[in-house]
Computed example of a mutant assay.
Amino acid sequence: MNRNESRYFKTAAKMDEAFLRLIEEKDLEFITVKEICNKAGVNRSTFYLHYETIDDLLSESLEYMNGHFLDFMGQKDSAFIERISQCQKEELYLVTPKYLEKYLEYVKSNRHLFENAVKRPQVLRLDESYEKMFRFVFTPILERCQVPEENRRYLMAFYIHGIMAIITEWLKSNCEDSVEQIMSIIQQCVTHRRNQ
């Protein structure tokens, strides 16, 4: 990476961080490009070199935040996939308490960004996120569980959309219920379907 590319990415990171701080203070509808630039210490023209709209910045900020989430989880994709291929079949849960708790804590601590993303699913690009998750995480689990290939996308749509519906309801209440309670509800739903 040359010096200009490095500067470009550092500036983008500054705007991501500024945006994430602003979204903790107010709803997306009330955030202006001027406020983002002031908080990031960049010119308005710099913003438009990087993004066309604030929704573009929201989308990038979610990717930026997801990178931080992977750091928070302390896990690399390859290690996770290797564990899926080597662990006992009884350990293959699509939603494990260990990861679910960390995910819910992360959602709660970044709830304003998630609330705004849920209001704008096209910006969040959920379909792309699900496809990646499906390919890298769920497909190996479903293969090991010998779920027929033609049934996999339906099964995963059920799990993912169901979990996201619960999280969306939780966000609507400003995450008032405890992480443990939401985790218990999700596990009840997942366990109930798995045992039938």
Rank of each mutant, 00 (worst) to 15 (best):
I54C: 05
I54V: 15
D55I: 03
D55M: 05
D55V: 04
D56G: 09
D56T: 01
L57Y: 04
L57V: 06
L58F: 07
S59R: 07
S59T: 05
E60I: 08
E60K: 11
S61E: 02
S61Q: 01
L62N: 06
L62I: 13
E63L: 14
E63W: 10
Y64I: 01
M65S: 14
N66K: 06
N66T: 09
N66E: 14
G67V: 03
H68L: 15
H68F: 10
F69S: 00
F69L: 06
L70R: 09
F72G: 02
G74V: 10
Q75R: 06
K76L: 12
K76R: 11
D77S: 12
S78H: 04
I81A: 04
I81Y: 02
R83I: 00
R83W: 15
S85E: 13
S85W: 11
Q86K: 14
C87V: 09
C87Y: 00
Q88A: 14
Q88V: 01
Q88Y: 07
K89A: 14
K89W: 01
E90S: 15
E90H: 11
E90V: 14
L92P: 12
Y93E: 15
Y93L: 15
L94M: 15
V95H: 08
V95P: 01
T96Q: 15
P97A: 11
P97W: 05
K98V: 09
Y99A: 06
Y99T: 09
L100W: 02
E101K: 15
K102L: 15
Y103W: 10
L104N: 07
Y106Q: 04
Y106E: 04
Y106M: 04
V107Q: 10
K108W: 06
K108E: 13
S109C: 03
S109I: 03
N110L: 05
R111V: 04
R111F: 08
R111C: 10
H112Q: 14
L113R: 02
L113W: 06
F114S: 00
E115I: 13
E115Y: 08
E115C: 09
E115L: 09
K119H: 04
P121M: 08
Q122L: 11
Q122F: 13
V123F: 07
L124R: 12
L124I: 05
R125I: 07
R125W: 03
L126R: 03
D127R: 05
D127H: 08
E128T: 03
E128W: 05
S129F: 08
S129E: 08
S129P: 00
Y130M: 12
E131V: 05
K132T: 07
M133N: 10
M133S: 14
M133G: 07
F134V: 00
F134L: 01
F134N: 09
F136A: 07
V137C: 14
V137L: 15
V137Q: 13
F138C: 06
F138N: 06
F138K: 01
T139K: 08
T139I: 08
P140E: 12
I141P: 06
I141R: 06
L142M: 15
R144F: 01
R144T: 03
V147L: 14
E149C: 04
E149F: 14
E150Y: 12
E150M: 08
N151T: 09
N151G: 02
R152F: 02
R153C: 02
R153W: 04
